[in-house]
Write a protein that binds this DNA or RNA. Structure first.
Lengths: 159, 159
DNA sequence: GATATAATTGCAACTAGTTGCAAATAGAAC
DNA sequence: GTTCTATTTGCAACTAGTTGCAATTATATC
């Protein structure tokens, strides 16, 4: 992605913050730069590192709080990969899901409306409006399924 | 549930551990008792408390390690509710999912094969074998949807 | 540019959970 | 019942993330 585009992402998000009544601070600029420069989801920790690479005195609670804020406002998306592993990204492609392989950690991005049917069913049957615009599902990818025909025992003895 | 049934759950799981080559320790007995007595998912912390209510000197790392072990062996199920909130339970009803309301935290249990169709589709289209036997989906339940027709602003000023 | 003030940051103390390692112990073999 | 040893536990130090609060600062107004 071009340098211009990256700058645009940052300034657009800053402008949105101002519109919503929030302030532009150097810490927020740094964080949005880091997010804009990333080509994939990044963890809060990685983002803190990248922010500190530019300006080491930024406090970690500021990064955590701002990531939460931005996610709440819908300016960035927050993907929960389970076991407390959360990653953030700007909305490059607004609507997609992830298939994560438990074995090789490979991640397959799939179409955003893959779950539209089931979403409609849940609404009809249970009156439940499920948020299904950015899901992560775990399982085994094709390669790993083919490589692993037999179930591995979990016992340390047998490993 | 009857006292007998509870004891049975514990002894059954202990027997399975022995079959798999693991040892029976007082700590594991206490943990399985606590799990067997629970009528719902419990967090690791709550389980630690319950174990310590009986025998206060049990170490927390032991509880965490054993919950991980039991879940890995499939003897208990581990439900990830996102944001690092994980809960454990013995398999009373083997196959179900949860619809969790973001607003009132109400939890609706739904049928285990609600996602069978989509699971088959993911396998056909992407060769991905998704684990879909115990999912948690977030959204708004019927009541909260009806109560909340307008979108609330997130800004602290306006709250 | 100075002033006011609400938003934001930095700090320090805290929580839940993890890890490496030495000590204790369950279970097997005698 | 002793002995052996791999498993399991307890400990202490650590990590990621959270929270309350005082100090700082971005922005609006004059």
């Amino acid at each position: 992605m071009s340098r211009q585009k990256l700058t645009k992402i940052r300034t657009d998000l800053l402008a949105r913050l101002v519109e919503l009544g929030y302030r532009v601070t150097p810490q927020r600029e740094l964080l949005l730069s880091a997010l804009g420069q990333a080509d994939k989801h990044l963890s809060a920790e990685t983002l803190l590192e990248r922010v500190r690479a530019v300006y080491p005195r930024v406090n970690k609670s500021v990064v955590y709080r701002n990531l939460e804020l931005l996610a709440q406002l819908g300016l960035i998306s927050c993907m929960d990969f389970g076991q407390g592993h959360v990653e953030y990204e700007v909305h490059h492609h607004p609507h997609h899901h992830h298939l994560v392989c438990r074995n090789c950690r490979a991640m397959l991005e799939i179409d955003g409306d893959a779950f539209a049917d089931i979403q409609r069913q849940l609404l009809e049957r249970y009156g439940f409006a499920a948020e299904m615009d950015h899901l992560a599902l775990f399982g085994l990818c094709r390669k790993c399924r083919e490589k692993m025909p037999v179930q591995i025992s979990h016992h340390p003895h047998s490993l």
